[in-house]
Write a protein that binds this DNA or RNA. Sequence first.
DNA 1: CGTGGGTTTGAGTGGGCTCAAGCCCGGTGG
DNA 2: CCACCGGGCTTGAGCCCACTCAAACCCACG
Lengths: 235, 235
Amino acid sequence: MKKQDETPTCDYCFKNINSIFRHLTPEQMDLLSYTTTPRIYEKGETLYHEGRRINGVYCIESGIVKIFKTGFDGKEQIIMFGKGGDIIGYRSVLANELACTTAKIIEEGLLCFIPANLLLQFVKESPGFSYEIMKLACKELGDANQYITDLAQKSVRERLAEILLHLVEKFGIDGENNLKISLTREELANIVGTATESVIRLLSDFKHSGLIDLQGRKIKILDMNGLKHISNAFP
Amino acid sequence: MKKQDETPTCDYCFKNINSIFRHLTPEQMDLLSYTTTPRIYEKGETLYHEGRRINGVYCIESGIVKIFKTGFDGKEQIIMFGKGGDIIGYRSVLANELACTTAKIIEEGLLCFIPANLLLQFVKESPGFSYEIMKLACKELGDANQYITDLAQKSVRERLAEILLHLVEKFGIDGENNLKISLTREELANIVGTATESVIRLLSDFKHSGLIDLQGRKIKILDMNGLKHISNAFP
DNA sequence: CGTGGGTTTGAGTGGGCTCAAGCCCGGTGG
DNA sequence: CCACCGGGCTTGAGCCCACTCAAACCCACG
């Protein structure tokens, strides 16, 4: 929560070995650093709104962003989370469509905004960058297809177990096996695609089966293999 | 069903104004025509298998391809259909992963196979082509996100109505308002993500409500607006 | 010490699944 | 030509998962 005095930098985003920007030339990197201004975004801030125009993408240096669609009756469906190193919003910019999701900060962090024209310039100029973005989209598409199948065919119980494992994979666990991301029960329900009460009952069920332990929002993972078994995934 | 004597060509795929190949140079187009050999694929043939390596993509000149994942218990989940002008399999080739879906012909037609290295060469050489593929992936990603939300939040009834409208949009209707794609009840169920019996009951329900008419596999669309209303989509 | 957001628990219900049987129709072989 | 077969389609019965509604609890915070 304490404010940082030093000028924030986007080293993790831009210069990391796995960064999608790693194929840019030094000149392009300079342009990127020059054009973008990283800043701290606080919990609850909205980066972009479903259905509105989006004139750039966000690169996440730290923090967590939830990306969701709003259904017919106003219920959120969480599509994915973004964390350090991720780039979000590129779908709508590249497809030149209105945003199909809303992005909201759920854990404060440093992000930087990259204007659409700069992104498009890099796409045109750099086949390497272009290819990275393409791979990213294809990867997400594969994940989406998997989730469609799960939603269509698996029970809520299976899906919840699977989601817990996905969260472990993406955000990791601390020294005491606690999941590093903190979500409300409702948010969990909005990932799994079920009612809040169902998540509560199933979590409590998992706890009594010795698979997890619960302390408020902290979820301690006790038996990964048990969860894998329930999820019917992760072969 | 009658065999064609003339050499098949891929004009629709390659030279159409909306083709993703439209930004290729004449030399690249020649290379494409020279390298690929279009052929008729018959109903039931499998283009590629989920979980196996895929060493190229398919361009559909005519016919219909169903693309599906196989769930834990062997049930198919249809992810999308491909028709004339579509290109399929690029996801796995570009992400350099095993195929995440299976592709099977459900209506015979002319397709041509484009080897992975040729595709990748074009991606590297032609920013225009690269951008087209990127847009395609982004478009599909948007559709996938929408379907995730629908599966998670809508009833089977709503989803079935929506799927019927999607099929009208993609495949059109003939002079008598019959849907131009012919699917088994089971296939319909495998799109919607439900049991075959549920589809049958709901179709019969829609028929009694005057929304559609049924003659074997033919589905006649009588009331688009009624379907829209039920689907809670298409604003 | 109230207030409100999040969480938990219980009761009741119904959408949609499973299982089972029968029907329809085109194909096949005696 | 007819009997048989099999795949797809339809209908019915029963059940259970998961949703809804309602009430109470917890706890951080002003």
